[in-house]
Structure formats: C-alpha cells, structure tokens
Amino acid sequence: MSDTKPLPPRATPLQPRRRAIIVGASIGIGAAMARRLALEGYTLALLARQEEMLRGLCAEINTQFNETRAIAYAHDVTDYDSVPALLQRILSDLGGLDLFIYNAGISLPVGLKKFDFEKDHRTIETNLLGALAWLNPVAAMFQSLRSGQIVGLSSVAGERGRVGNPAYNASKAALSCYLEALRNRLSRYGVNVLTVKPGFVDTAMIKDTKGTFWVIPADQAAKDICRAIRKRRQELYTPARWRWVMFIVRNIPSVIFRRLIF
C-alpha cells in the first residue's frame, strides 16, 4: 500500500471539497477521469495494481495543483478481503466520500473456436467479483449517509452475448444488471447510480482487437462521464450514438444474431 503523507486538506465552508475513489485509475479512462475530476476540485483516492504508474499520475496531479489532491493506493481488486479495511482507511484519509467509480476491467478474448475457463475466471474475478467486493461496502456506506454517487464502467458489450468474448460479455451484462439493482435500492436514499456503457475507447484493452470503429480517445469518454456525473444521470452511452446502435443490436432476432461473427 502506498504512503499517504501528506494527506489532502479537509473541506472548509469556503473551500468545499468533493471526494472520489477511482478503482482502476492508472491508465485509460480511469486516469483520464482522475485528471478531469482533479480539475473540478475533487480530492482523489486512486487505486490500481500498477503502483508506479499510479504514483506518477498522483505526482502529476499534485504538482499541477500545488497541493495533495490525489493519493495512490496499490490494490488488486481480486484481493476481496482487503476491501472493507481499505475503504475505511480511504474514507479517513480523504475525510469523506462523495463519488465512487469502479473502472477496473480486463478483456481476455479467446479464439472463435476455443474455450478457456482460466481466462473466463480471471475476467469474472476482475470485472464482476472485484466490483461486487467494492460496491457492497460502498453502497452500505452511502445508504447510511443518505448521499453519494456510484459510477460503474460497464460496456455496450454487456448487451448481447457474442461469439468473440463470452466471459467479457457476461461480466459486463452482470455488472449492468447489478448496477441497475443497486440504483433501484439506493435511489430512495438519495444515492445515484450511473451505469456507463462505452463503445470502443482508445486504450490498451482494444489495441489487439480487430474491426474496431468509432474509436474515441479515453479523455473524450472521461469528459462524457464527468458531465453525466454532474447531471446525476443513470445511464450513459459514450459516444452517444451507441444508444441507438445498441437498441438495434438488442433487437436483432437470435436467428440472425447467432450467424454473425462479431
């Protein structure tokens, strides 16, 4: 775990500070979100496995604002048991929590004619079980506080099971469904849950993927997500045109869909 000295300054009535956790913050959309939220005045707890990159990002943000605005915590989301104590520590380090973002995710495609339980297992562990390990205590916390916002990075890939990446599709479908259930449980307590469904985003995840299109930079996705957070929206497709594409895809009859090879 990273050291956390000096701790970020606490809010005062004239210098209010919102506080956010980003799980999966070292690269890609997570890192872009961190930069944007820091600019909006958030104090951040940034979590990822890759400690060195995380420290670099924190140093960049803290130098830019000339104060501790981001703290690094090395964390593997599959270390489920460590989550409650780490969450407690982050709450104490930041002095509160207003926003929780689960962005950790992996995609381990298997060949069209192959099956690989080990890869599927790892995918489900990071994309789904890691999310549940965090979302449970965070939801309990926000429910008690009757405030807060949860953001889950799901994917358009969770809307149909496709031939190329079954476990990834399943993990994101389950995550979207779980987030919807959380929303239904927590909205009555004043807690907002935002499900983000990006299309293809220019990150390490898609660098070996063929047939990508409408690829947007990670910062573009981060910008859309930050706007959706401000507006306390419940669901976001980024870029927006995926909403209509997925409407069509969701309604393609199975008799056709199972003959497609994407």
Partner: peptide, 24 residues
C-alpha cells in the same frame, strides 16, 4: 488486520451554520 467499522454508524454530521458536512 483491521476490522471494518459498522457502516450503520456512519452519519453525515454538520456544523452549527449548516455550511460544512462530514461523515463519521
């Protein structure tokens, strides 16, 4: 090993002027 505190004890407390809130 730390044991997490009960979340139901978490309360959003305010100052007298209602100008600052912090969970505890």
């Amino acid at each position: 090993m730390n044991t997490a505190l009960p979340y139901e004890k978490l309360t959003l407390l305010e100052n007298y002027g209602h100008s600052l809130r912090a969970p505890a």
